[in-house]
Design a protein around this nucleic acid. Structure first.
Lengths: 220, 220
DNA sequence: GGAATAGTGTCTCTCAGACACTATGAC
DNA sequence: GTCATAGTGTCTGAGAGACACTATTCC
């Protein structure tokens, strides 16, 4: 069978910078669209990658130096018109990393707010939109936003991460009641001492319950 | 770039037969696994198919004669070990069709209950499991199971479809209250006259709200 | 009338939202 | 002590589950 199909993987890496959801973009080195900002992605390497998830991990490590973030398959975009080189398949993944985990930025990498994002090549705007929609939706009934925070964090920081992802404010009391139901957090010894007020307890994600799911939605 | 990647589409077509969820299988005509029952699937035809969704529609029409069912992308399975021919990508879709829409069966086609399904070639068992999990999950907060019923149906039949998909019984009163909230149904003139009891009102899905979503889950 | 299913009313208990309250450490 | 945020208690209304009730048709 003569197929000549291009198989690529694209990754939507999201993080929180200054209270906004931002997406990682890289400057394309090769044609097509050389020099343009686009999602990190690349060909599947048949010899090197066991499956598409491995390709996604490799792409993230090579282009952004990120090693083992939260990484989930988003969906697959395909067709004859999305890539000028021909009929292509892009298996899209999304990754969530803590704010600041991308510290030493190369000049070929940047972060942009997902709201009001510039025009991107290929169908990358659609892919970003799909990723943001997925994360927003899943934030409503899971612990996903916790992956946007550093190793340890206060409950207020966690609530802010949720609010920044889903775009609304949450009630402190109700939020903490929900968290209590699916104990995916464990307190650590230290406490956060910032400013002239009562210090907050620090928590981290329990190793045995990385991704916890709420029974019902978080906000109506 | 020398990729030599096999790009295929596989479809998990689900329907309800005798109160059970069943999946459509076809007898493979070509190697590998010729003669074995497997999911309907096929190569992406670069000249013929605009995108992978078009491939899925073509496969369903050619192998099962189904024209425009509910069809949704499931996820993508990939890797060097899932197909003996080499590194492959299978973009999986699932379809929901009314019971009995598959009436004139060819001998190369069969239906099998999804619970206790036999061993299938490739990673097709994983794909079926993923499809069933998706449908079960989505049934909890959407009108998906309505696509398993014929054009018109009674509320009792709709409730049974939900029960067969999610595998538990539902309360009649609570179920109808939920339906009232997201009016995706409209009554039709006729009523169902079967047996010696009060006839039931028939309904159909409103054209403008094909897939409606519940705010919260259907059953706890 | 009886049988059988269609369809509705109502009670209770849980829980989300709202909001006020107490706690505690920096200064 | 004050300030600022951490953290908790409580009221209320909406809604899910349970279950009993009425309605209507065939026989």
């Amino acid at each position: 069978v003569e197929q000549k199909i291009i198989a690529t993987v694209d990754v939507v890496l999201l993080t929180i910078i200054e209270d906004r959801l931002e997406v990682l973009l890289v400057k394309r080195a090769a044609e097509p669209f050389a020099g343009r900002w686009a999602l990190p992605g690349g060909y599947v390497h048949v010899e090197e990658d066991g499956d598409a998830l491995a390709t996604a991990r490799r792409v993230l490590e090579q282009k952004a130096g990120i090693v083992s973030p939260y990484l989930e398959q988003l969906c697959t975009f395909s067709g004859h018109s999305r890539d000028p080189r021909g009929w292509s398949v892009s298996i899209a993944y999304f990754a969530l990393v803590p704010r600041g985990a991308l510290a030493p930025q190369k000049s070929s990498v940047c972060l942009q707010a997902v709201d009001g994002l510039a025009q991107l090549p290929f169908d990358h705007n659609r892919i970003v939109d799909a990723a943001v929609a997925r994360v927003r939706s899943k934030a409503g009934y899971s612990s996903l936003p916790a992956f946007l925070l550093p190793e340890t964090f206060t409950l207020t920081e966690l609530q802010q991460a949720y609010e920044q992802v889903i775009g609304t404010t949450l009630d402190k009391s109700a939020f903490r009641r929900k968290l209590g139901l699916l104990d995916f957090l464990e307190p650590v010894k230290n406490r956060s001492r910032t400013g002239k007020h009562r210090p907050a307890q620090l928590f981290r994600i329990r190793k045995d319950r990385r991704l916890a799911l709420f029974g019902r939605t978080l906000a109506s």
